[in-house]
Design a protein around this nucleic acid. Structure first.
Lengths: 205, 205
DNA sequence: GCAAACTGAATGATGGTTCATTCATAATCT
DNA sequence: AGATTATGAATGAACCATCATTCAGTTTGC
């Protein structure tokens, strides 16, 4: 039962709303039960619609999962690029990336679970995701490191791409641990700890 | 058809062999198709036995996956502890851990895929795995860092546990990238690159 | 009143698990 | 030693619960 549009709200926005509702419901259901253990009926029920309605908006259960990734990733990349363009120093850019990464995932636990867990549930998904947004993200980090090397801020005896993977891996592990932790704590502040080691290393000077 | 026991080899070793065969087959099948997309029939076929035989050695498909983790992880931890006990300096111990981590996973791609991908396919598995071996592994790293801090080799303004997660996360990302990469390259040498940054940081001094 | 949106029961494929049966080998008997 | 019986590992066809997907009918919006 589409929401009555008192004003000029057209069918277009209703469609968007329902699509949105299905995606939100799917994120929640996937986060709790896992992709393979989630039934389409679960998603429909969570969204308060009939099973068949899901298929009016998505071709298949798998497409629902894909849509979740695509939307979240392109939003994230877009915001990231925008924020970064406002910052000059590579060092500060890296700091902003780390903060954004942890803020975004730390502010939506269900989404974080889907990203950290479901995305990695099959090499197939990982390959597809990798092709889609992940490699672009990694490349932004890589490029920033490279700029930092040219500017003399970062050591030049390390490969930028390896460096980018290390930072990503460290952040990623913070998120995974945060998800699995029984205790509840804010994720974003971990960025500082990660950066302190990433920038300065663990050895005493 | 049990192998004839010319000597004192009893049924015991036959049982172990077949269990082993099933586990090896499962690792291969899971690595290629993913846990949820693998049929028990696939595993049986790969092992050259009948479907039902799998259930003579394992309670369920899920127990097969669990056994893979348990065995591999306890072997790895055991070997790690042994090797580390021979080394005195915390810095060298960390180096050895990183090398072992990448050597082990780099020497068995199928096993690596199962560990990097299937293990993370559901929060349930992750929780169980976490309880089992992962937290012990992380704790070994943590303890080593702590020793290093006491010995004055590592900075004391960083939490050992966070530090351990960062190292683990970085190594883990190396493995994941190695798995997904189309190119084939040796994984173990990446340890040096990771350690250079982990120890010294990326900033110019 | 008709087109679009929605419903949810029915369908059909899938695949984990079971179990009646087979058969090679070991144990026992003569 | 040879014949007979017992054992239990192995088999694989069949069972049946589980969903993803479909579609004929209903409701809603204009």
């Amino acid at each position: 039962m589409p929401r009555t549009n008192r004003s000029g709200q057209s069918a277009r926005s209703v469609v968007t709303d329902k699509r949105e509702a299905i995606l939100r419901a799917a994120i929640k259901v996937f986060a709790v039960k896992g992709y393979f253990n989630s039934k389409v009926a679960d998603i429909a029920s969570e969204a308060g619609i009939a099973d068949g309605t899901v298929y009016l908006y998505f071709k298949s259960k798998e497409e629902v999962l894909h849509s979740i990734f695509d939307r979240a990733m392109s939003e994230f990349i877009e915001e990231g690029k925008r924020e970064i363009s406002l910052i000059a120093a590579p060092e500060d850019r890296i700091r902003k990336i780390a903060q954004l990464h942890l803020e975004k995932l730390g502010s939506d636990r269900d989404m974080a679970v889907v990203f950290q867990v479901e995305l990695r549930g099959s090499t197939k998904f990982m390959q597809e995701f990798s092709a889609a947004g992940f490699s672009e993200y990694l490349d932004i980090i890589r490029q920033t490191i490279e700029d930092g090397q040219k500017a003399g801020a970062f050591r030049s005896d390390i490969k930028p791409i390896v460096c980018a993977k290390i930072l990503y891996g460290a952040l990623d592990e913070m998120v995974t641990n945060w998800i699995l932790s029984k205790r509840s704590y804010p994720l974003a502040p971990m960025a500082d700890e990660v950066l302190r080691i990433f920038f300065g290393g663990v050895m005493t000077v």
